[in-house]
């Protein structure tokens, strides 16, 4: 069988046995053979020097890059940062309270619906109650008019402003970004959110802030239009957790991590299964490979050339 396949392939020219001949042919077309030895040396030296100089310049440029004064957030030990560590759901629930009472005044969250809270931080009845707290414009009705109705589970989180222009007009021209995917959309993720929310301080000398701007070293550029929002005891938690500013920031960052990655826990569940299954299959495959190859591997071929 193998011999037949080999015959067919060689006959059809699929297998080229003479690489040397092809190499010779290619060499024959090259014009560099006509160059003198000195010329070749010079060109090679110039090429190596140019490449080296370019690499050096790139490395130097990278090492002294200081184009923006921006503080990078430190890595915090989140309880969900391990390979198979789930989100802290009680923290998500508290973070929802913070979002609802503090952030939602300016920020929208248009990709999260009240039904998403079910089984994550709220029961179905609690989520229904949360939805019913806000009014949604629905319609048109039979008369063609829009009307207000209490929210349902299928409704998305309300937008505090009618449109982007209204949001800009209310915030000194700055647009509060939608928070649904903010953790995925910012460098540093939840660490950035936490550091930004707790990192407000007085502007250092030399930094001029316009009216309505605040200084935050973690914000690119330093001048942020959002005022510090989280202070100690700015709200009271339902479960009695002391509402310090850092606790609020941690909870809301965890909540925003969930909204950005609602599949977070399922993904980590899947990792346990996939890692277990694939390592098992790897062992099995390795054994079967050894089993199938033993006859070939334990073969001895002896060759005696003709005297």
């Amino acid at each position: 069988m193998a011999a037949t396949v080999g015959r067919i392939c060689a006959g059809a020219g699929l297998l080229k046995t003479s690489n040397g001949a092809v190499f010779n042919q290619i060499n024959a077309f090259s014009t560099t053979r006509e160059w003198s030895k000195g010329r070749r040396m010079v060109l090679a030296t110039v090429g190596a020097l140019a490449g080296g100089a370019g690499a050096l310049m790139f490395a130097l440029d990278q090492s002294v890059k200081a184009s923006d004064l921006e503080l990078h957030p430190p890595k915090n030990p989140w309880s969900h940062s391990g390979l198979i560590n789930s989100l802290d759901h009680s923290s998500v629930r508290r973070g929802y309270e913070v979002y609802k009472q503090v952030c939602a005044a300016c920020h929208s969250m248009k990709y999260i619906a009240y039904r998403n809270l079910i089984g994550v931080s709220h029961t179905e009845d609690e989520a229904k109650a949360e939805a019913a707290e806000m009014m949604v414009t629905d319609g048109p009705d039979e008369a063609g008019n829009m009307f207000q109705r209490p929210g349902k589970l299928s409704d998305y989180f309300p937008n505090p402003y009618a449109n982007e222009e209204a949001a800009r007009a209310a915030n000194n021209g700055a647009f509060p970004p939608d928070l649904s995917y903010i953790v995925s959309a910012r460098h540093g993720g939840e660490d950035y959110i936490f550091s930004l929310l707790t990192g407000y301080c007085d502007a250092p000398a030399g930094i001029v802030l316009r009216e309505g701007q605040y200084y935050n070293p973690y914000f690119p550029g330093g001048a942020i239009s959002m005022a510090q929002a989280l202070y100690n005891e700015v709200l009271e938690y339902e479960d009695g957790t002391p509402a310090t500013a850092s606790q609020l920031a941690k909870d809301v960052a965890t909540f925003l991590k969930w909204t950005a990655e609602p599949e977070h826990d399922d993904r980590k569940r899947m990792l346990i299964k996939a890692a277990g299954m694939f390592s098992f299959l790897l062992v099995v495959t390795y054994y079967l490979k050894r089993h199938k190859w033993t006859n070939i591997k334990t073969r001895k071929i002896e060759f005696k050339p003709r005297k």
């Binding site: 299954m277 098992f280 299959l281 099995v284 495959t285 079967l288 089993h291």
Partner: peptide, 19 residues
């Protein structure tokens, strides 16, 4: 022994394929 290993591989493969 070998068939058992092959069978275990089949089971694992069937599980993975099903999911």
């Amino acid at each position: 022994f070998t068939y058992l290993i092959a069978g275990a591989g089949t089971v694992g493969g069937a599980y993975a394929a099903k999911s």
